[in-house]
Design a protein around this nucleic acid. Structure first.
Lengths: 365, 365
DNA sequence: CCGGACCCTTACAACGTTGGAGGAACAGTG
DNA sequence: CACTGTTCCTCCAACGTTGTAAGGGTCCGG
């Protein structure tokens, strides 16, 4: 098919550019700056965003002045397209209102700001399908990297779908890091929930507790399962398996409801010792403490309570909560580092918590 | 300058396109899908993302099949450029680890998900300059709208710089909404901190408290100033101006430190009644309660404490905290609605808190 | 007075997409 | 059978950048 040799373009193109302009009329483009400064597009580009080539001082100043005068703001999307890379990372959490995730997010944001990276947030609402949807959306945004902060679910189908999506993302040059469990085959900040839970339970047996009530969270959430299994293993080994092993939502209300029901039926037989409630996280522990109080009982005199995470906002509850301290902000920062640097091979960083015994589980006798 | 009528382009262009390709090699483009399906770019675009025009069933299926087979993911940045609009909004908070902001953010995220909007998060770390920097970065990203969730600072210079930046953003068609104070001339969810603080203080006078200690936060933060001034006004009107009026950081540590110092010097003279500490937010109130306990005193027997916000995570502290309930998640959702709909003119929505008297300030006598 | 730096301009092809203009095939109408 | 509409596609010019190739001035040293 032959091409007709079009008419001289310059003027006509400019006119049509203005006429057809798709963006809002008020947005200043590099073209506008170049025109205002009386230089070419390429020169303006080099002064304002370019790297390699140098531009002479007089022109340089004219361009900068024009840009300032017109209040030019480079279009990052266009830059990303032209350069073939963006400086956005996606952060996926289950619930940003949950202090566990918001603390991790704070750690991520701090590192991101230092690296001049922009963070796009997505929340799954604890639904594996929603997580896949959001990961796909972030892939469409061509984020440079993806941070998956949430616990994995024990759901083979959803995990497979996610893994597919992540593989496609990584095939396009994207980096991925996960926090919690190492089941996705990506760089991971692995939290050793099982081991830390064991140590906490052992410590409590050492303090003299014998009757344990487990608020283990739901069966499908890996973090909850790991913690509960750690508690269970240690207690069973020490000869004091949990007298009650409850499933409930991984939330304040879940723990509050489950323990409330139990207490309404009366305390487990205890040989004079207060029983000890082991909650799978601090938020649940606080819900459990509320249920104890509502039953007219005292923490720790009648019921001892321990949590997990050492959420900063909850450090001042009274009695202060025995828990496992996780360096949540550092964990977030660490995950960011995993995707920020270009590492030669897959890495798994281990994080273990530190047991903190406080007022909610005083030594017995 | 004459144009030479270039050689037939199709094949040659394809070759060079492959050769010079800037994006990562693994990324599938619309072009690839079109080629694989044996249709033109435009047809593929219309099948996969297009709206208006219809594509015949046979071709339509071929395109969908090719897209699925190649695992095509549309490039949202390119779409944004071509369409001249994005579906990203920017959310600016002071500190995402602060439950006040994370709860607001959760409200925003929920609405955003429902509207298929992507949210980019920025944290200021409570620095006005950082806020301007982040707003500029979000403008470069060509976000569709901007949500400023943080309290304003009483800093004329920084406010002016921010206002300039916002005007430039709005000139380019961006929408802006603010939460808290109405000083930027944009759509606002205005929180009537002053009035709610008055009502809380009046309630406490009604309960019999007479000696008040104000933990008013810093002078520069508008939210803290509004709340403190509401407390002060009500107390002064009722004839019981604060016996101590302390400035401190708007944080747990700020309140804890300031009140700790005071208590180290002994309780204010009280005529047998416990004094009442009025903190400018819940997190500070909890820090204050910790300081009271560390001084060997009891809340509320020796010192009563009240806060502000009704942070969900802190609803189970013991004794339960007297406070002002703000519907934080709804406030976030509301701000999102302000920028999501296209409103004819500037709107200011008022939100007032509800006073909740709980165990930390029992009635006297 | 020429050759070569140096600094700039012009021009253009990307990047991945959209949307308008235009055209081919085909049916319906006179 | 020519005309006029529809459909359903394709082609091409945007969108705002970057980066490179090709070229044109100016200045300097030989």
């Amino acid at each position: 098919m032959p091409q007709e040799p079009e008419p001289a373009p310059t003027v006509e193109r400019t006119v049509r550019r203005r006429a057809r302009r798709a963006t809002a009329p008020g947005v200043v483009t590099l073209h506008d700056v170049a025109t205002a400064a009386g230089v070419s597009l390429a020169t303006a580009s080099r002064v304002l965003n370019g790297s390699s080539r140098v531009v002479g001082e007089p022109l340089r100043e004219k361009v900068l002045a024009a840009a300032a005068r017109l209040d030019y703001s480079p279009n990052a999307q266009a830059q990303a397209m032209a350069r073939g890379r963006s400086n956005i990372v996606g952060l996926v959490v289950h619930d940003i209102a949950d202090p566990y995730f918001s603390t991790i997010a704070a750690g991520v944001m701090q590192r991101a700001a230092a690296s001049d990276v922009i963070v796009t947030l997505a929340v799954t609402g604890s639904s594996p399908d929603t997580e896949v949807t959001h990961v796909a959306a972030l892939r469409r945004q061509r984020v440079r990297a993806l941070l998956l902060a949430g616990s994995r679910w024990q759901d083979e189908e959803a995990t497979a779908a996610l893994r597919d999506e992540l593989n496609a993302f990584r095939a396009g040059g994207g980096r991925v890091a996960a926090i919690s469990q190492d089941v996705l085959g990506v760089d991971t900040v692995l939290i050793d929930n099982h081991r830390a839970a064991r140590r906490l339970a052992e410590e409590l047996v050492g303090l003299g507790y014998r009757e344990f009530v487990l608020l283990g969270g739901p069966r499908g959430v890996a973090t909850a399962v790991d913690r509960a299994s750690g508690f269970r293993a240690a207690l069973t080994e020490r000869g004091h398996p949990p007298v009650l092993d409850l499933e409930c939502a991984f939330t304040r209300d879940g723990a509050h409801g489950a323990l409330g029901e139990v207490l309404a039926r009366g305390l487990p037989a205890s040989g004079g010792r207060p029983p000890c409630v082991l909650a799978a996280n601090d938020v649940m522990a606080v819900g459990a403490m509320a249920a104890v109080r509502e039953a007219g009982l005292d923490v720790p005199r009648d019921v001892a309570v321990a949590g997990f995470d050492d959420i900063p906002t909850l450090r001042d509850v009274s009695p202060s909560l025995t828990t496992v301290r996780l360096p949540l902000a550092e964990i977030g920062g660490h995950a960011f580092d995993l995707v920020d640097e270009t590492a030669p091979q897959r890495r798994v960083e281990h994080v273990t918590g530190r047991v903190l015994v406080r007022e909610s589980t005083p030594p017995l006798r």
